[in-house]
Design a protein around this nucleic acid. Sequence first.
DNA 1: CGCTTACTTGAACTCACTCAAAATTCGTGG
DNA 2: CCACGAATTTTGAGTGAGTTCAAGTAAGCG
Lengths: 224, 224
Amino acid sequence: ECSLSSTSVCHALGKCDHAFLETSRSRQITVPAKRMLIREGETPAEVFRLLSGWGARIKILADGSRQILTFCLPGDFLTVEMLHDVPVTFSVQAVSEMTLCAFPKKHLIEQSFTQPDLAAFIEQLWAQRVSDLEERLVGLGRLSADRRIAGLVLDLHRRLKMRGLATGNEFAFPARHEDIADTLGLTPPHVSRTLTALRQDKLLEIGGGRAVILDYGGLEKLAA
Amino acid sequence: ECSLSSTSVCHALGKCDHAFLETSRSRQITVPAKRMLIREGETPAEVFRLLSGWGARIKILADGSRQILTFCLPGDFLTVEMLHDVPVTFSVQAVSEMTLCAFPKKHLIEQSFTQPDLAAFIEQLWAQRVSDLEERLVGLGRLSADRRIAGLVLDLHRRLKMRGLATGNEFAFPARHEDIADTLGLTPPHVSRTLTALRQDKLLEIGGGRAVILDYGGLEKLAA
DNA sequence: CGCTTACTTGAACTCACTCAAAATTCGTGG
DNA sequence: CCACGAATTTTGAGTGAGTTCAAGTAAGCG
């Protein structure tokens, strides 16, 4: 049993008053790693919020290859279309086992009529997602492999830290090399080589399901 | 003198009822090519809609290089932040000479309280922009230069056609090779070579400020 | 203990980059 | 209308980052 703001991760988001959302009844579900939860083109009747584990918003290309748009971390909504029954433009896949709570979309729509704050809150979510995508776009277009990885890890660290899910410069990192590769437009072998180089340079250590930022300043300078 | 729905491009957008916006007084301005209109970090008090010419939402990187996020075409809003006074996350530059009309943002905010449709309309704009960015992200991550160009041209053609700004498979194309390169993460020399190859393959002809799609099906197959 | 999955390493290859120069187009003033 | 300078596009040769394909190693897990 959970509500939009009853969990610790939700509190961490702060600022936005969504007390009104607490009344929405929800169901909680579990999804095993690699399972596809939402498929591109579907129109889910529920809005999902991630409680634990990582997910990925992905696109499958004609040739079968996969591009990860963004990782979903605990506290994130898997989709942002809250007021519209429009088909989603991507699929959502579990990177590690996910637990999440689901809110019927129609409750949100009803409440949007009486809650003027909701529109502003949702616009915030959109703006955040757009800003995120723009950042990624810049990285893919212009940066070398080591810089892309540096940027990705710093971004994940920042997002997890905001939610209190990173202790110091260390955090759980369930993504495999293939996931990193599909995010950054690289290949798993090259991700492996680049991570080895970063480890030798004493900047970053990823392995065994955990990430440790060894030299935060150095990593930032690389990503810039 | 123009209003949000008084121009032909606005009518082409259709569907959404924004008659209420017609009452908003606006000013019309002209911007020469290459001029920077909005700078990253600013909080413009107005919302701009493009009437003619092309613009580009861009990011300037630390090393001075430029990444174009999306092209703005006639009918597009340069920014989507309508209800919030938040800093924009990108700059906007004129690709060719632009004429546009500007609406005071505060009028929109006032009207959002009385117009529940406005929230839905704005969410549509956000969803469109996100979908656009996602598409671009996939292209940058996975596709070769010729496929990226094919995808970009088809996307521009689709958007212009919707607005009645493309006759058949031909349309005005004011972007230079440098603009294409900064959009797709390529270099101007390689754009030139790739365009030459596409011309020889009788797929696409770009030059003299115009684009002609010679083989629509072939270009689609390439971009897929 | 055997099987699967994930990661690492190596060698050859390729696409796109860099740098540089030549050719073309565009804009502007005479 | 032409001439000139600037911006843009084209072309060439050499280089390099990342890929592909393949084999080998390590790590979970029944």
